[in-house]
Design a protein around this nucleic acid. Sequence first.
DNA 1: CATCAACCTG
DNA 2: CAGGTTGATG
Length: 629
Amino acid sequence: MRTPDPEEQSREASDFISLHPQSTNAMNAHISNNLSIDYREAKKTNSYLQRNPYEDCLLSYSSGSVRSNLLGKTMETTCCFIPSKIQSEYGGSASTETEKSQDPDSSFSQAAIPSPNVSNRLYSEHIKAKKARVESIVQGMNSSFNKEELCLQGHKKDIEQLADLEREGFRESKRKCQIPHQQNQSQTEPNRIDYEYHQLAEQQLRQLQGRLFQVYYLCDVEDKKAKDSAKRSVNCDINESHQNDFMWRRVSEMEPHKRLQEERGLGGNHGLSPQDKRLSEMLKRELSRAITHIVDSVMKKVLLTQSEHLAWMSQMLRPRSTLFGENRAELIPAAELSQKENLNRAEQQSMNETESPALAHITNRFCDTCSQPMKPRESYHIPQVPYLMSMQENKILTQLLEHKPSSSCIPSNTVDMPCRETVDQEWENIKVMSSVSSRNSMPTLQKKSRSRKSEHADLMSTVDGIHYTSATDGLSSGHLKKAKLMFFFTRYPSSNLLKNYFPDVKFSRCITSQLIKWFSNFREFYYMQIEKFARQASIEGIDPKDLMMSHDSDLFRALNMHYNKANDFQVPDVFFNTATVTLREFFSAVNTGKDLDPSWKKSIYKTISKLDSDIPEVFKSPTYPHGGH
DNA sequence: CATCAACCTG
DNA sequence: CAGGTTGATG
């Protein structure tokens, strides 16, 4: 009946994240992978959001030190949430039948996978073998990423699986990023960046672990007094390794059933005790805050690294600027791509190009602020170097930008750099700019249809030479302010009128509807306020003749605050007249009970729409209300 | 079918 | 303020 609703999907996805521990961990591992080593898996994240337990399982099985660190010995617990089908694939035919064994671990399994008895012994052995294998993999991964070590431990099969996954990942990267020879290149200089990313992400994840287990600890203390002190301890530096060790010990010491309870508390909120609910809520909150913080920190680091290596990059990347630059499209001949891949490529390319001005602008601003010798305008391809993220990452970043970095005291742990404050400042600036310009750039990212093409053309016209915030780009906060002032004169502007009064705006369908939408929102607020006051007056039994909006009425204060916040504009008398008429219309409608009619407002709207007056000529100035006019 | 405005929601 | 939905209109 209904077509899939993207919002609903994403809502579903986020519910899934918060409810399913193994998926959360998969996400963690994912984030770390993306931030530390490469970008190839970024797009895959979506697939994890869409309830693919098998991939989740594989990922949790293969995602390296991050996951192992995060879960430590609770890993096998998590595995019990794998659907029985997967379990049987994974562990052999006997496994699903035997979850109710005497094995201490079985308490988890029972809860997750009810199944008939067949062979307890077989299951026990299977569990032990699995446990041993998993633990040794975890150890191997923890000590290093060195696969030879794992081989030495006799886990060739596991290594093969890992290698398969890696090869798969590499194929993915070739398809999605279209960066041939990436691996070869990573042997040389870019490896340094990868290493730094990796280091940073590891650091941040250690902090995340610390925080997570602080929360575990916090909820585990017996009395609530202790909770307070523990909360204070969350606010102190938890990066000390011995503290982390303490946390690990605590988790290890947890009784299995208790761990199960807590795991299940995350897995679904069914039948939770208040304590479990509290734990669940706190974990979710802490997790999201920590991840936000991590991403913020990493992005700061990225910016910093960017500035440090700009000069270096210009040398290193110019000869083979195929990483992310404009040559990207030529890397793989179209004929070699399947139809689907062609579509993906076109989409990627389009999105990438669409973002280019914004990215370039970010970089330009950054360079200006940091007084780098590099002049971005002279080397247009420089801003598109790898640091500027793949489009998926930029998308993720943009989404993350919506969240403020938590004010928590996680030590940012990034090395103190001379430019640190500048980076912080720049980070804030970028966030601000992102929110201001998001109306220009983001719709073209999110809506892949409709006006995309024309918008794209608009934006592309600014790439070469014209500054990103030039007049052709769309609506700014200045335009918004102007529109609000215009509302004092007109409530129902036609699109032609808007075109006349915003001569500096290059109108497209999208821009027009945005402007129209602004006025729609203005009206909404206007009518709402007036209805509120009309109803109040009706209750108070005020005589309609006495009912009017004057300069000192609360109604005017509310409206003026909304449309003329700075109060630097003289509100015209016509507006007082209109508002008074509107007020009386609502008042009489309420008094006569017309408001019982579902569409009682329509006649009022019709009346008010006729009261639009002319807008002063000065509004036609492109710079109004600022600048010379 | 496209467009618009109101309405609802976040 | 923007996104989506709904109902009305041409």
